[in-house]
């Protein structure tokens, strides 16, 4: 198991190098002089040249590339052009907010999505099935920024239950949770919809399997047939779906963070974009890639728990 994890992490290195290269190239292709962006187009030629030297932009491209690459592997993603602080520490300050939000979204998705999916499969083509399916379609087609605004209007402004702007002090646990509810629900709704749909189709398939018939023939209670015999097998594709949609979820968390004015990677990206903070932008992209790699690894490891046929060797 440990060997497998180490092997998978080693395999992540070429992926990360590829991502770093891609990010490096894209940033260089984008027209414009970073020094001029920072100093403005009225800056003197001397000042621009000095800044370029300081930013390491005056050396050959290949040297810049390797400096960037080795820096990244040492955890040095450069300094933000705007604040001058190291990119990594900028990211680390806001990362807990995004992790809170994503985990809460996934938890809501699983806690509601899996049982709803099972219900729709067991009572397929019934009224329950249709109602849940319509709602999940609703959840899928609702843009995250729109549902976020609706949530704020209803629960923050109308009923005054939760804060409009989600900018909690992380050391205060109560406040942290209170500020998390609405953004998490907003993100969770989409996840519930995705998980409900994939649980339904996966369960429908498994319920037709011979071993479910065997379980019935053994006289096992119906609830046990559905959970222990059917759901346990249906979970395998559901885990894949959850892993895949985590990427979508992180994308949606950007929108959610913006609408709720909540600190996080999403807002950091937006700020970096609007301020043309190239180093920050490329740093955040690298971090995102790293997170996706980790999420995929966790997904693969989860298979080992739900499917005994998967051996991590």
């Amino acid at each position: 198991m440990l060997k497998y994890v180490l092997k998978r992490l080693a395999m992540a290195i070429p992926i990360l190098i590829a991502v770093l290269t891609l990010v490096f190239v894209i940033i260089r292709i984008v027209p414009g002089d970073p020094a001029m962006v920072v100093l403005g187009d009225q800056a003197s030629a001397e000042a621009l040249a000095a800044l370029r030297t300081k930013m390491g932009l005056d050396v050959p491209l290949i040297q810049q590339y390797f400096t960037f690459l080795f820096g990244a592997f040492r955890g040095d993603l450069g300094a933000s052009l705007l604040s001058g602080r190291p990119v990594l520490s900028e990211v680390m300050t806001v990362l807990p907010y995004t992790i809170d939000l994503t985990i809460a979204g996934v938890v809501i998705g699983i806690v509601f999505g899996v049982p709803l999916g099972v219900l729709t499969a067991v009572y397929r083509n019934s009224v329950t099935d249709y109602i849940i399916r319509v709602f999940s379609l609703f959840g899928l087609s609702f843009p995250a920024f729109y549902s976020a605004i609706l949530l704020i209007l209803i629960f923050s402004i109308q009923f005054n239950l939760f804060p409009v702007i989600s900018d909690p002090d992380l050391s205060n646990y109560g406040e942290r949770m209170n500020h998390l509810v609405l953004p998490a629900v907003n993100l969770g709704l989409i996840m519930v919809a995705y998980i409900t749909r994939s649980t339904r189709s996966s369960m429908l398939e498994v319920l037709r399997e011979d071993y479910v018939r065997t379980a019935k023939a053994k006289g096992v209670p119906r609830f046990v047939v559905i959970t222990r015999h059917a759901l346990k097998n249906a979970l395998i594709p559901i885990v894949t779906v959850i892993g895949l949609y985590l990427g979508v979820l992180i994308g949606n968390s950007v929108l959610t963070e913006i609408v709720f004015n909540r600190p996080g990677l999403g807002k950091l990206i937006l700020d970096a974009l609007s301020e043309r903070d190239y180093t920050l932008l490329q740093g955040v992209m690298v971090i995102y890639a790293f997170i996706i790699v980790i999420v995929n690894l966790i997904t693969d490891l989860t298979y080992g728990f739900v499917d005994p046929r998967v051996k991590h060797q």
């Binding site: 399997e209 011979d210 071993y211 018939r213 065997t214 379980a215 023939a217 222990r228 015999h229 346990k232 097998n233 739900v306 499917d307 005994p308 046929r309």
Partner: peptide, 16 residues
């Protein structure tokens, strides 16, 4: 009690 034709698919793959 009943036993079935397909031993390959009639046992639950996720349980010992």
């Amino acid at each position: 009690a009943m036993i079935f034709q397909e031993p390959m698919t009639s046992l639950n793959p996720a349980l010992t």
